[in-house]
């Protein structure tokens, strides 16, 4: 434990030294070599290395709940944020961060977004999870109940009568909903 923490702080202070990499293996067997400060944004990885005395630099950490596709998305976000962090406090990258985040999610389909939320939840990256759930909320903000069901893959288990009753009760809440 002490070795990994100590080397993480020294690697950031002396940039000339070769950066330490952490190996993460996704569900479909691909191994990602991830720079340590980026990998440590994944809370599950950080605590794995902090809690296990016997892991070494050569240890490949398996992440059976994360697909390769989701991992690419996760790392893109975490690397960008590591980059923003390094430049602090000189630059005030607030606008830049927003611009990056906006462009980042624009390229993600609803399915990709959901997959990333699942991965961010499993990897316990609270900042990314918070950002992605916000994006999901935005995407369903003005959408119909049917759209929301399809978006989240949720099955309607109300009887037609039960649903009609609920909708009647909350009739006033359905004004201004977008067409699907």
């Amino acid at each position: 434990m002490s070795s990994s923490i100590a080397s993480s702080s020294s690697s950031s202070s002396s940039s000339s030294k070769k950066e330490k990499k952490i190996s993460l293996k996704t569900s479909d067997g691909e191994v990602f070599e991830v720079e340590e400060p980026v990998a440590m944004q994944l809370e599950i990885v950080r605590s794995f290395f902090a809690d296990n005395e016997d892991v070494t630099e050569q240890t490949v950490m398996p992440l059976p709940n994360v697909s390769t596709a989701a991992m690419h998305g996760i790392l893109e976000y975490c690397r960008a944020h590591e980059e923003f962090r390094r430049r602090m406090p000189e630059a005030a990258p607030e606008e830049e961060v927003r611009a990056f985040e906006a462009g980042y999610v624009d390229r993600k389909s609803n399915e990709e977004l959901k997959e990333m939320i699942l991965a961010a939840n499993y990897l316990n990256i609270s900042k990314l999870l918070d950002f992605l759930t916000g994006v999901a909320a935005k995407r369903i903000e003005n959408k119909s109940v049917e759209y929301v069901r399809a978006f989240f893959g949720v099955e309607n288990d109300f009887t037609p009568e039960e649903e009609a009753n609920l909708r009647r009760e909350y009739e006033w809440a359905f004004e201004g909903v977008d067409e699907d």
């Binding site: 699942l118 999870l129 109940v145 949720v154 909350y170 909903v177």
Partner: peptide, 28 residues
């Protein structure tokens, strides 16, 4: 019931005002 875990859904729900939540009650 969820394609996403319940605590993640709660995270999303908490971002909405009461009016939107009234609609979401009709989902399932």
């Amino acid at each position: 019931d969820f394609s996403l875990p319940e605590d993640v859904m709660i995270d999303i729900f908490l971002r909405f005002p009461a009016k939107k939540l009234a609609q979401l009650r009709c989902v399932c």
